[in-house]
Amino acid sequence: MAEMIEAQHLVYRYPPEIGADGKPGAPNPPTLRDVSLTIRKGSFTAVLGHNGSGKSTFAKHINAILLPEEGTMRVDGMDTADESCLFAIRQKAGMVFQNPDNQIVATIVEEDVAFAPENLGVEPKEIRRRVDEALKAVGMYEYRNHAPSQLSGGQKQRVAIAGVIAMQPDCIVLDEPTAMLDPKGRQEVMETIRRLNREQGITIVLITHYMEEAAEADRVVVIDSGEVVMDDTPPKVFSQVEKMKALGLDVPQVTELAWELNQAGFAVSPEIITEEECLAALRALLSRASCAE
């Protein structure tokens, strides 16, 4: 079975707010309208969408924090609506949140990483092994005896990732993990995510609104008003600059540059997402121009 996550026609609406009279108010419009998405094992998928598009709501379905109103969500073949699978699903698909401060439980780094295996009832010796391994995987082993409050944002977020890895999940869902970090912290976290995907084959679902981060994925899914509107490789998605802008999203700066050149009649493909590609394309363009003279 090669599918990690299979979402079929998910519909979800948040329960109405309780008004001052103690009665529920008018029902909310659905946050997810009809989301169908399958994510393969070992892949790296980025989910994009502007605020309120439903991307975080979708992420919370993967981990059975939210259950779909209609449709089904399967994680590694297990239905999230089946309560007996709840902990198996949460162990399979770990989740990392935006604010590292609000997901670290313990006062010492290694104690925090041990939290999940402790909950799963793993033997102390095995916990030790997993904690060391997880901390090494995110490059935080030297900090194992530090207090979380002594760490930088990027380091804290890596500890949070280690805390999920210690469950030995097949998939990690990251809900805007870099939104509260400085550029250095963002880079640290992105490097860690990429390494986990390549070296350990962990399926990554990265919810983000940084286009440069999404460009590093194998696949980009764009969600708008609770529906999947685009789903392709990063170059194919980002080269549709007008459509992206219409959805209230940006594209990486290099893609925009290439697209503008393309629109102005230069022979540059808009399917450019990295600086290296852009550089090569510009070089080729300039050398052609100088040859023509």
């Binding site: 981990n63 924090i65 902990f87 949460r90 162990q91 770990g94 989740m95 949140f97 604010n99 609000n102 997901q103 439980v105 939290f115 999940a116 909950n119 799963l120 805390g163 999920v164 469950m167």
Partner: peptide
């Protein structure tokens, strides 16, 4: 948020 994060890490 902490409670959600704890549940995600299988706290019971």
């Amino acid at each position: 948020e902490l409670a959600t994060a704890m549940e995600c890490r299988c706290y019971r």
